[in-house]
């Protein structure tokens, strides 16, 4: 095979680079070592105003060579331009593996690129390894995470795979060394852009409290939260504990929670040190999004709830009975704690 090396397509965000880019770089280094891959791990970043900060960050996270594609046309994600740029790069340099974050943009970018390159894409991998022949084995969930399957793409290159933010978790920090940083010119590619899709702008949601994916403690509510008042108690509990609020589908449908708070295969994956599930029965797709939490505490009035099977501490009770007492107990105790 002439195709060589592992690429990580990093993503520029409003505050720098998305964390999943660093998670992927750590994984790429691990794969390189495991498969005794000779070629350096390459980070590719598309965006605007990509100064030294970006290359330093990518290098620190494990990139051994860096390709920056810096252009005002890449300010916002736009699938046609982004995929055209990466297609040109991949055809010229022929990487063996391309890893991408399954962010909102990445989930669209990867299959578009895969179709343009006529190759395979493994979506939302939860793990990956190289087999004895050096092919990528991507472990992907199906049926809401109930089933895990290995996906291979042995006869086509590059092998593309996406991973949701937070799934790999681990980020590494390398001491500074110099690494080659290249800037890739896209003038010719942009000249061919038909302008069929134009990005006008992006509006960020106002974030309340700790971001869900970064919180060390998550209080999540589900179907068993029967009223807005109880939902507010759950929010109070999270505030008292200094954690973030997550949810399953029903609170979202009620309008109590936002889409960005949903935990599960079609929402976010979290791995807090402590997870408290209140009124959550534990459908597979939710469990898939919280199974890696440290201590799992579940409160549900139905003793047969599947969530109890994956919990460290089980409380069979009504949320309405426990929440006010818990908040009160925690607030009362706060006064006599000296730490």
């Amino acid at each position: 095979m002439t195709h060589q090396g592992i690429w990580v397509v990093a993503e520029q965000t409003v505050s720098g680079i998305s964390r999943v880019s660093f998670e992927l770089l750590a994984k790429a280094r691990e794969l390189k070592e495991q498969g005794r891959v000779q070629a350096p791990v390459t980070a590719v970043l598309l965006g605007e105003n990509l100064d030294d900060y970006y290359s330093a960050k990518l290098m620190e996270a494990g990139a051994e060579t860096i390709i920056l594609v810096d252009h005002p046309a890449l300010r916002y994600f736009q699938n046609e331009t982004y995929a055209a740029v990466l297609k040109a790069l991949a055809e010229e340099r022929q990487p063996s593996i391309i890893l991408m974050g399954a962010t909102a943009a990445g989930s669209d970018f990867a299959p578009t690129l895969g179709a343009k390159l006529r190759t395979g894409v493994s979506a939302h991998c939860v793990d990956m390894r190289l087999n004895e022949e050096g092919h990528l084995v991507a472990v992907v969930p199906a049926f809401g995470g109930k089933v895990l399957g290995d996906i291979l793409c042995t006869n086509f290159r590059p092998q593309i795979a996406t991973v949701r933010p937070g799934i790999l978790g681990k980020v590494i920090c390398f001491m500074h060394k110099q690494c080659p940083v290249e800037r890739f010119d896209i003038t010719d590619i942009l000249a061919q852009d038909q302008g069929r899709v134009k990005a006008l702008g992006i509006t960020y949601e106002e974030m309340k409290g700790v971001p869900l994916e970064e919180a060390e403690l998550v209080v999540a509510g589900g179907f068993g939260i029967e009223s807005k008042e109880i939902w507010q108690q759950l929010e109070t509990l999270a505030a008292v504990l200094g954690g973030a609020v997550g949810c399953t589908r029903p609170p979202l449908d009620e309008g109590w929670a936002k889409e960005s708070q949903m935990i599960g295969t079609s929402g976010k994956s979290v791995r807090p040190k402590i997870y408290i599930g209140v009124g959550i029965s534990g459908a597979t797709h939710h469990i898939c999004g919280m199974k890696d939490a440290g201590l799992v505490i579940s409160i549900n009035k139905d003793e047969k709830s599947p969530i109890f099977d994956v919990s460290d501490i089980r409380i069979t009770a009504d949320a309405a009975a426990i929440l006010p007492l818990l908040i009160e107990g925690l607030q009362k105790n706060e006064d006599d704690v000296i730490c």
């Binding site: 998305s18 962010t103 943009a105 134009k198």
Partner: peptide
Amino acid sequence: KVKMDDAVGEYVIQ
């Protein structure tokens, strides 16, 4: 309007 990560993107498409 397209759902992005904790954001909404606006696009025009032909």
